[in-house]
Design a binder for these strands. Structure first.
Lengths: 326, 326
DNA sequence: ATGAAAGCGCTAACAC
DNA sequence: GTGTTAGCGCTTTCAT
C-alpha cells in the first residue's frame, strides 16, 4: 500500500496525501484531511521509510559497533543506547567486531552504505589507530579514545581516577603487594586504569613492581591465568582487576588454590556489571554508569547529527562500590 | 559520490557503471571495466543501499525484537543472530520490548517501515496472542510460541523434556519436596517446563503440590522472593528454577537464610547462561544451545525470505549440565 | 486548497 | 559493448 494508492482512493494527488500524513496540512481542507486519514487507517498504511530516507537523505538509523554483545558491559550499554535512540525516534543497527579491526572497519563501511545518520563505536580492544577518512558520518567513540584529530565525539569514564580509587582502597585495607591484571596497555581504558594504579602506589610510598602486573584481555580467562601466573611470582595480597570479568576469573583461580578472598587476597574489579554483586564473594568494584554511558552517547550523537553546538568530550564519574571481595 | 559522478569521470553511462560494480560485466570491455573499478576505488565509492533497496525491494536487513538485551540469554542469542546474519550479508536492527506488548507491536510496525526482509521475535514474556496481520514480512519466533495459524517460523527448545530431566535429576538425587519457581504459566517456555516437572513427579509417584509452586517472571528477583515465600510454606529440599536468573536469586535467598546448597536444598536452573558456571555453587542447569538458537533462527528466516522450501518448526535439544548446586 | 512534476541513487529491460 | 529510460515511494517547490 503506497501513498499513490491512497491518493487514488481519496481522489487527490500524492502531494496532498503526503502533506496530510506528515502533518503539514495547514492548507488542507478538513474534509480531505479526514478522508485521507481515514483511508490510511483503514488500509493499514505504513510509510516506506526507505523511500522517505532516499528523498530526505536521512534514515533515522544509527549504527552501533561493539566488540561483543554477549559481554554484559556492552549489552547493558546497548540497552542504554537502544532506549535513548527509541526516545529520539532512531533505530539502531547492531554490529559485533569480535575485537577484530578488519571486521570493525568493514562494519563502518556497511553502516555508511546503509546511510546511517551516525555511528556509536567502541573500538576493538587493541585498536588505537584511526582509519576513518574525513567527511564521513558523525561518530561518537564510547569508552575508548583513539589518536585522531578528526572531529569525533567521545564519551568516556574517568579511568585514571577509577584506577586510583581502586588501588587506594586496597592500600587502605592494608594490602602491601597489589597486583594489576588487565587488558593490554595499548587499550585506552586499561592504560589509564594502570596510570591510576601507579599513582596510588607511588603516592603511598610503594613501588610499581613489574612482577605484579599481568596483561591480556578483558576476559575471565585472563583473570584466571593471570592470577595463577602472579601467584608463582611471589607475594600477593591484593589484586586490582581491570574489569569485573577479570575479577571473576581471579576469584575462580584463587578458589582453586584454596586461597581465601578477601582474607588472604583482596580483589577489586571495574565496571560493576550486573552480575558482580551476585558473585561469591560479591565483587568490590569501581562502578561505571554503564547504561548512562550508552544514553549519553546517543544524546551526543543526535546533537551532532542535528548540527547543534556540542561539547565533543564528556567524561563521566566512577564510584567505589564496596562488597565482600575486599 | 554517486554512480552518476563515476559515470561522468569514466565517460560512460550509469548503466555501465552499475553493471561493473555489481559484477554483471560479461559484456563490458576489459578496458572500461578496469577504468571504472579504478575510479571507484580512487574516489572511495560506497554504494547507497537505500537507493538500491528502494529499487530492488530488498534491504538485506532483519529486525530482532527481544525483551531485554541486558539479559545474558538474549545477548548470547543476539550474538548468534548477528554472526549468522553477517555471514549471509544481512544487517540486524535491534529492538528491546521491555516485555511490553505495546512496545513490541510498535517495533513490528517500525521494522516494517524500515522494510526489513524479515523479523526474529522473542515475544514479551506474557504474550501469547498474535497481532500480526496477514501478508506481512516473514517472521521467525524464537523460544516462544503463540496461538496462531499464520505461517510463522518457530525455533524452539524441548522445554518439556528439559523440565522433565531437571526434575528427574532432583528426584534421583533424593529430593522429596521439589519446588518449581518460574515465570507465569501463560509463558510458553515456563508452561512446558512445568509440564515436564509434573510428568517427572507423577512418574515417580510424587504429588504436584501447589504450595511448592511460585510463578513470577524470569528474573533474579522472582527467584529470591519465590524462595523466601516457599520456605514459609514448609519443607523444601529441591528447587527447579525456570531459568538461571531465578536460580541465582534462589541461591542468594538461601545464603541469606544460611541454608546450604546443595546440602540442604538442591537447585537446578535452566538455560546455562554464560555466568552459571561461575556462581557459588556453580549452577546445575539444563543447557540450551542459546547461540545456536540464534543462528538457526537466521538460517530459517533467510530460507523463508528466499522462498525456499522450509520446515517451519525446529526444536533443539536440551542437556543436563551437572554442577555444584545439586 | 490542491496538483504537476522533478528528483533522491540505483537497476534492468531494451535499444542500438 | 554501451546507453537510454523508466521507475522504486516519497517529498516539496511552484503553479494554479
Amino acid at each position: 500500500m503506497t501513498i499513490k494508492e491512497i491518493a487514488e482512493l481519496a481522489n487527490v494527488s500524492t502531494a496532498t496525501v503526503s502533506k496530510v500524513l506528515n502533518g503539514k496540512d495547514q492548507n488542507i481542507s478538513e474534509a480531505t484531511r479526514k478522508r485521507i486519514l481515514e483511508i490510511a487507517e483503514r488500509v493499514n498504511y505504513r510509510p516506506n521509510r526507505i523511500a522517505k530516507s532516499l528523498k530526505l537523505k536521512k534514515t533515522y538509523t544509527i549504527g552501533l559497533i561493539v566488540p561483543d554483545i554477549k559481554n554484559l558491559y556492552f549489552s547493558e550499554m546497548a540497552k542504554g543506547i537502544e532506549d535513548a535512540a527509541e526516545k529520539k525516534g532512531y533505530s539502531v543497527i547492531l554490529c559485533n567486531s569480535d575485537n577484530n579491526m578488519d571486521k570493525e572497519e568493514k562494519y563502518i563501511n556497511i553502516l555508511q552504505e546503509h546511510m546511517v545518520d551516525g555511528i556509536i563505536l567502541t573500538t576493538a580492544e587493541n585498536n588505537i589507530d584511526v582509519y576513518f577518512k574525513d567527511g564521513q558520518v558523525p561518530i561518537v567513540l564510547l569508552d575508548r579514545n583513539v589518536n585522531s584529530d578528526l572531529n569525533i565525539g567521545r564519551i568516556l569514564v574517568d579511568n585514571e581516577e577509577g584506577g586510583y580509587i581502586a588501588t587506594k582502597h586496597l592500600i587502605d585495607k592494608g594490602c602491601k603487594n597489589i597486583a594489576f591484571i588487565s587488558s593490554i596497555n595499548k587499550n585506552y581504558s586499561s592504560y589509564y586504569r594502570f596510570i591510576g594504579y601507579r599513582k596510588a602506589l607511588l603516592e603511598s610510598g610503594y613501588k610499581v613492581n613489574d612482577q605484579l602486573i599481568y596483561t591480556g584481555s578483558f576476559s575471565i580467562e585472563t583473570g584466571y591465568k593471570g592470577t595463577l601466573e602472579l601467584l608463582k611470582n611471589g607475594e600477593v595480597d591484593g589484586i586490582f582487576c581491570g574489569n569485573d570479568y577479570i575479577a571473576i576469573g581471579a576469584i575462580k583461580a584463587l578458589k582453586g588454590k584454596n586461597i581465601k578472598v578477601p582474607h588472604e587476597i583482596k580483589i577489586v574489579g571495574f565496571d560493576d556489571i550486573l552480575i558482580a554483586q551476585y558473585m561469591e564473594p560479591p565483587i568490590t568494584t569501581i562502578r561505571q554508569p554503564i547504561y548512562d554511558l550508552g544514553r549519553e552517547a546517543v544524546n551526543m550523537l543526535v546533537s551532532i547529527i542535528d548540527k547543534k553546538d556540542t561539547e565533543m568530550t564528556r567524561i563521566l564519574k566512577t564510584e567505589l562500590v564496596e562488597r565482600g571481595s575486599s
